[in-house]
Amino acid sequence: MSSIARVERDGVLSPSPSPLRQGGEREHLTAENAEDAERRGVDHPSPSGRGVPARALAVEVVKLTRAFGPKPVLRGVDLALEQGERLALFGANGAGKTTLLRVLATLARPDAGTARVGGLDVAREADAVRRIVGYVGHQPHIYEELTVRENLRFFARMYGVRDAAGRAEALIARMGLAARAGDRARTLSRGLLQRLALARGIVQEPDVLLLDEPETGLDAQAFGLLRDLVEERAVAGRTTIFTTHAAERGLELASVVAVLARGRITYAGPAAGLDAAALRTILDDSAGTGRGR
């Protein structure tokens, strides 16, 4: 069950045999995206079809724009991702990576365009989206005065997990937090806090997990936990999207790669066959295009 994505000319990621290809997706083809595709050498090969049954895309973003005040941050993002993919989202600071994740997590509303998660609209069906999305941002989004265990139990309850206490214990064991489970979150080191944040992000076993620069502050052992988590999720058909600056670590985790520059997706392709050097060339290239406008 290898998850290989095929990149179409319109910058949409999806495995080749997908009924959606013939459907509405084509209309998102724009001159600019066609240019991008040309520059990076047209279609990437699709070594194997996954034989995934037709179902909602994990993430489907169409012409998404979002500004903060007068400053446009996302300027028309198009992105489609099959379930079970592991997407590494690269891009310079201020490219809009965090904003894109916040839109998918329903923390920021789109100004225009649509974003769907598991077929659900983030603006109109926000509550349903929240149930299937996990989000780990720059902030750990935990309560500092509560213990590790209390935090996880609280969030499990908020997500309506039936056995909240049991779920909390499983997550504590899973993230290697057992020794500190009774300590207040405030007393945790940065790395342990990040583990707790990760545990909070997957408290309801989300179909789509959004991680904003998850590898920062993680030691080698914790990074291993993260990698195992992401891979297990992929095997189970669950999607993970993460932003990152680290080319090597990002490629290690990812099945597909996308680059966001100045509020647009400027590159999208499978991670297989990309090495860090090639990726850096693409990144520099995107940054250049973005600046030139």
Binding site: A67, G69, P70, K71, P72, V73, R262, G263
Partner: peptide, 13 residues
């Protein structure tokens, strides 16, 4: 004013 700020945002952003 809103239009001006938007233009400025686009120019800077």
């Amino acid at each position: 004013q809103t239009g001006a700020e938007k233009l400025r945002g686009q120019a800077e952003g």
